[in-house]
Design a protein around this nucleic acid. Structure first.
Lengths: 215, 215
DNA sequence: TAGATTGTTAATCGATTAACAATC
DNA sequence: TAGATTGTTAATCGATTAACAATC
């Protein structure tokens, strides 16, 4: 696998889509696929698909195309789905529970090891057989238990201080659902799910469909 | 307000961010702001901010900058936050409930008028004082009650058929949380919240921080 | 071998940044 | 008026698309 210069975010964001589509194609029992075929299914151009894949290596074969299973496996490795990832969720509201209970994540190697809340009536209970711990113990928990990701599903006001604690204790990735832009030290990766922004874009496009180019 | 040629998605996606930051700035009691100041707060370049805003009109004043309240109001109008929007949610799992109960949406003019599910044990109940209806009646409901947005928070397998019904009955916007790319006729706007893709990007960046450039 | 399709380089397109004249 | 800062045009940068030689 090539690993030279930085790969743009545009490319990275397409990898999970390729991965998902290849899963569908695999399920249909298709063994090989050309960039042309894949283009018709995904809506990306064949040229872009070949460019994207070649950032990571030559997974195809001239005159043949790509082996579906092999390519999907390679993409899984590139994304990091070949390894298990541990996650804790801070905030046990509906969003936290939605993530916690979503089978799809667990199926692709994510393991939720603990939930955190500050509400005493929730601390000590179990959700989906995962213990709810006091958020005060978050830093210590991270120190003692290998944790890849902290998901923040608390109200806005609590998010930054949780992110601070997580970063202080060596967390490398934060998945933030609070409608705020967190400040984090170098070396900590932040991925936002800003539902308010998503909804705002939707209503903009509804009223200005001239600007909408599809997804 | 100018309304000539199509405005790129990159610009549209920044509008809610500007709007959100301006709210914060307003809350701090700041009356006027220059593109330079706004750049320092938001992380976008001053040049980009001026370019973006000028797609919609000249909201500033040379030598002065922008009036915070007025600019925020203008952005609200551009996005569409000056009007009420009605939404129904299909799927009353945790994700559906999370959206339903999130105060932030209601505060910015979104009104959830009904929930839908296919589970008979849920139909007829109320969540947050909103009635849960049989998903079989979705099309008829849309016909009879003005509905701007259908949010889909069902399992993957149900999503496309719900989208079909919604589109058939004249829905203009779909907010999709199911991990699938929906097919929709022209004129229907689709906004996806693909949590799996978001999580995949996060783990990629954790393991390849050289490619991460921040948010 | 001939045909197909990749990997990769070159051309194009679009978005961001820089510069500066206009003007408050 | 002088200083500040916008609105807008031009330059740059980066991403997408096209083209084609390499090769299975």
């Amino acid at each position: 696998m090539k690993q030279d210069k930085a790969i743009s975010s545009a490319v990275i964001r397409r990898l999970p889509k390729y991965y998902r589509y290849l899963g569908m194609i695999q399920d249909r029992g298709i063994v090989r696929i050309s960039s042309q075929n894949l283009s018709e299914i995904t809506g990306f151009t064949a040229s872009q698909i070949r460019q994207d894949l070649n950032h990571f290596g030559g997974f195809g074969q001239q005159g043949y195309g790509y082996n579906v299973t092999k390519l999907r496996e390679q993409l899984g490795k590139i994304i990091g789905l070949d390894q298990e990832h541990t996650m804790v969720i801070v905030g046990t509201g509906h969003m936290g529970q939605a993530i916690c209970k979503y089978r799809g994540f667990r199926d692709s190697g994510f393991r939720i090891t603990a939930l955190f809340d500050r509400d005493p009536s929730k601390i000590g209970t179990r959700i989906d057989d995962i213990e709810v711990l006091d958020v005060e113990g978050l830093g210590e928990y991270i120190e003692r238990n290998h944790t890849d990701i902290v998901a923040i599903t608390t109200p806005k006001a609590a998010a930054q201080s949780i992110a601070d604690v997580a970063a202080e204790h060596g967390i490398k990735g934060i998945w933030n659902f609070a409608p705020v832009d967190l400040r984090l030290p170098e070396g900590v990766v932040l991925e936002n799910v800003h539902l308010d922004e998503s909804l705002h874009a939707l209503i903009y496009y509804i009223r200005n469909i001239k600007d909408y180019v599809g997804v």
